[in-house]
């Protein structure tokens, strides 16, 4: 099993905490980097290695506050990875947290859930 991935949050990038011991993968905070590729590339590289030898079950917890369109694409790609895992017979689930007052993040979650074929649960914070 590869080592866990931990990237601390910054002013314009989110916390990435993919823990391969617990099987809980968290993304939280705001993702507004102008150069989204620069930030997400290492995350995608890491995921590529992870899917070669994944855990039987992965739980993805999303607690995002803001994200720009450039990050949306990468976040979507990351979530797609779990669609691939399910196709290979593994278990994966995404939990999308949002504040009750936050229509925008709720809508984003609903939209992503409608285009991803992964068990997707919406939860209020």
């Amino acid at each position: 099993m590869i080592d866990s991935l931990l990237l601390d949050a910054t002013e314009d990038t989110p916390l990435i905490d993919f823990n391969t011991e617990t099987g809980v993968f968290k993304i939280s905070g705001r993702a507004l980097p102008e150069d989204a590729l620069e930030f997400f590339k290492p995350v995608e590289e890491w995921l590529k290695s992870y899917v070669e030898n994944p855990l039987d079950s992965t739980l993805v917890e999303m607690r995002v506050d803001y994200f720009n369109s450039a990050s949306t694409r990468y976040i979507f790609n990351i979530l797609m990875t779990f669609e691939d895992l399910i196709d290979e017979g593994k278990e994966a689930k995404i939990v999308w947290y949002y504040k009750e007052s936050d229509d925008m993040i709720q809508t984003k979650g609903e939209e992503l859930s409608s285009i991803l074929e992964v068990p997707f649960e919406m939860k209020t914070l």
Partner: peptide, 26 residues
């Protein structure tokens, strides 16, 4: 617009000749 957004997210763009990126659609 909503459909174009989803299609762009899933397939990279909403029309064969490319099209606005997610930012402009947003």
């Amino acid at each position: 617009l909503k459909a174009a957004y989803k299609q762009t997210l899933r397939e990279g763009s909403f029309s064969e000749k490319g099209g606005a990126g997610l930012g402009l659609i947003e």
